[in-house]
Amino acid sequence: EVTIKANLIFANGSTQTAEFKGTFEKATSEAYAYADTLKKDNGEYTVDVADKGYTLNIKFAG
């Protein structure tokens, strides 16, 4: 089991951190699915992958 950390960075400057656990593939998939649910209210997003994929910096356009 691994932990994927998602740093969520919103257009208004606020930030939030979420963690997803499971296999690497499952946790990564859940992180992207979570970002997709936030897209409606926060706009499109870009992802900067860090720490060999264990950290995702997800920035929303607003």
Rank of each mutant, 00 (worst) to 15 (best):
E1T: 07
E1H: 07
E1A: 07
E1S: 07
V2P: 04
V2H: 09
V2L: 07
V2I: 11
T3C: 04
T3S: 11
T3I: 12
I4P: 00
I4D: 00
I4R: 01
K5P: 01
K5H: 13
A6H: 00
A6N: 01
A6D: 01
N7E: 06
N7A: 06
L8G: 01
I9Y: 15
I9H: 11
I9E: 07
F10N: 02
F10E: 02
F10G: 02
F10P: 01
A11C: 05
A11D: 10
A11G: 10
A11T: 13
A11I: 11
A11V: 14
A11E: 09
N12L: 06
N12R: 08
N12C: 08
G13W: 09
G13E: 08
G13N: 10
G13L: 13
G13R: 10
G13P: 01
S14K: 13
S14W: 14
S14L: 10
S14F: 13
T15A: 15
T15K: 12
Q16I: 09
Q16P: 02
Q16L: 12
T17Q: 11
A18E: 09
E19P: 04
E19M: 12
E19V: 14
E19N: 14
E19K: 11
E19H: 13
F20C: 02
K21M: 13
K21S: 14
K21V: 14
K21E: 08
G22P: 01
G22S: 05
G22V: 01
T23D: 08
F24W: 15
F24D: 02
E25N: 08
E25P: 06
E25I: 06
E25K: 05
E25H: 06
K26I: 15
K26D: 15
K26N: 15
K26E: 15
A27I: 03
A27K: 01
A27P: 01
A27V: 04
A27Y: 01
T28P: 01
T28I: 12
T28A: 06
T28H: 09
T28N: 07
T28W: 13
T28L: 15
S29G: 13
S29Y: 09
S29M: 14
E30N: 13
E30R: 07
E30V: 06
A31G: 03
Y32D: 01
Y32E: 03
A33M: 13
A33G: 08
A33K: 15
A33W: 06
Y34L: 11
A35S: 05
A35D: 00
A35H: 00
A35F: 13
D36R: 05
D36A: 10
D36L: 06
T37Q: 11
T37P: 02
T37L: 07
L38E: 03
L38Y: 14
L38C: 04
L38Q: 08
L38H: 08
K39S: 06
K39Y: 06
K39E: 06
K39G: 06
K40T: 12
K40S: 05
D41R: 13
D41K: 14
D41I: 10
D41A: 15
N42Q: 11
N42F: 15
N42L: 09
N42E: 11
N42Y: 14
G43M: 03
G43L: 03
E44T: 13
E44I: 11
E44Y: 08
E44D: 10
E44G: 09
Y45L: 02
Y45W: 12
Y45C: 02
Y45D: 00
Y45T: 02
Y45K: 01
Y45N: 01
T46L: 08
T46C: 06
T46Y: 12
V47W: 06
V47A: 07
V47P: 02
D48Q: 07
D48P: 01
D48W: 12
D48I: 14
V49R: 07
V49D: 04
V49M: 12
V49I: 09
A50D: 09
A50M: 10
D51H: 07
D51F: 04
K52F: 11
K52N: 13
G53R: 02
G53P: 04
G53A: 04
Y54H: 10
Y54S: 04
Y54M: 06
L56W: 04
N57F: 10
N57A: 05
N57E: 07
N57R: 07
N57M: 11
I58H: 00
I58S: 00
I58L: 06
K59F: 11
K59P: 01
K59S: 07
F60C: 00
F60I: 01
G62M: 09
G62I: 07
G62R: 10
